[in-house]
Design a protein around this nucleic acid. Structure first.
Lengths: 210, 210
DNA sequence: GCTGGCCGCATACCTTGGTTTGTTATCGGC
DNA sequence: GCCGATAACAAACCAAGGTATGCGGCCAGC
């Protein structure tokens, strides 16, 4: 495990006063903060890949907060987003929430509201990073399998017997066993049950009738 | 499979004009509709258990739409909810969306907006019913296992070998095999991989270190 | 007091999974 | 032309999974 450092909060607001206020608020509880005055500045600098939460003003010069969120989603940057808005309306709130925002705060808000939202967002991010990490690891191992090994992996984890795999692929059973053994080693599976769970991560729930 | 009948939409609004307008709108595309004038009326009659979508006015006499949603969640009634509101504000929208609403429409809205929201909600409901049905089936079968069978199920699906299960439970290996065989039959698992997937449904992802 | 469900075990047998050692062959790239 | 990766297979084992038949004990409910 890497040493978990303090949460990193990214703030994007065109008002320097708000940026400073939020920065000192978050620093006061031991978080790290980086601020940007616009979506363009953030994207030019690049989203820090250890960010745990983003606070976006809805109204920003140039690209709006909502459009920035859309861009982040398209870039598959899944940092939890909290919106701030001066005079928000319902449709923009709905759009932001549907797109996955964890909260939507109307200015002015109390410090505690913001801190609660951030702590929920950071917790969400930790969980996501955790499960993504495991998933990526499995996918990486899977990608390192040879084509034949992938075929054997897919079939045995779907429940096929070695002999059926052999028949379907036109191989002898012993060959399947050898591939299967290598799959177990390469995937780092300590039991067949383990392997099935990995298969579930790679290709979730292939449906079957009762 | 049961014959899938047309989607059932539940409307709750205190304005009879709105109720009628929505009813004829939904009926025009072949859906079934039941309407209520308040949360109390709905709860007194009971939420139809084949409902696929609920349209709630936020402002209702007595219990508000948002409180009704909270009640439904507490009752574990997971029908997708769409809110309508005359003059909505951001906090109420956030609350509704966080609590799982699929959409939030500001009156007046275009018919097409409502139809789009409903069709998304109905699709969501079908998916949910589908996966819940499978899950319930597995849980029911699991509940029908004897205590010993459950223990054996848990251990083998976690990856333990029969001999280890036997040692841990103070049994002979043959006894474990017999239990295991009965578990396979009772659970309706056609392969061990099947069984592992069922275990995943019952007790999702028990974490292990690499 | 008897039945039925749950639990446990043995003997016997067969199938399936898994490993090791060694051989053969193809193919792409340096 | 050779190396490394991929692929396939055989012989020989050994371990683990799975089933059937049969036995006995315990306990709750009728």
């Amino acid at each position: 495990m890497t040493a978990a450092s303090s949460p990193l909060i990214v703030v994007v607001d065109d008002d320097a006063g708000i940026r400073d206020a939020l920065a000192s608020l978050f620093k006061s509880i031991g978080n790290r903060v980086v601020s940007f005055e616009s979506a363009q500045h953030l994207l030019a600098a690049g989203v820090p890949d250890d960010a745990n939460c983003m606070i976006l003003d809805v109204r920003l010069p140039g690209t709006s907060g909502l459009d920035l969120q859309t861009t982040l989603n398209r870039l598959e940057i899944r940092i939890p987003v909290i919106f701030m808005t001066g005079y928000g309306d319902v449709p923009m709130t709905v759009r932001g929430m549907k797109a996955g925002a964890v909260d939507f705060l109307s200015k002015p808000f109390r410090d505690q509201e913001m801190l609660d939202a951030v702590s929920a967002a950071v917790a969400l991010d930790r969980r996501r990073r955790d499960s993504d990490g495991r998933r990526d690891d499995v996918l990486k191992r899977y990608a390192a399998l040879t084509p034949r090994e992938k075929q054997v992996f897919d079939m045995v984890s779907a429940g096929s017997l070695n002999k059926n795999v052999a028949a379907d692929l036109g191989l002898s059973e012993i060959t399947v066993k050898i591939h299967r053994g290598r799959v177990m080693k390469k995937m780092g599976a300590r039991s067949f049950a383990d392997l099935v769970r990995m298969a579930e991560v790679i290709a979730p729930h292939s449906r079957e009738a009762t």
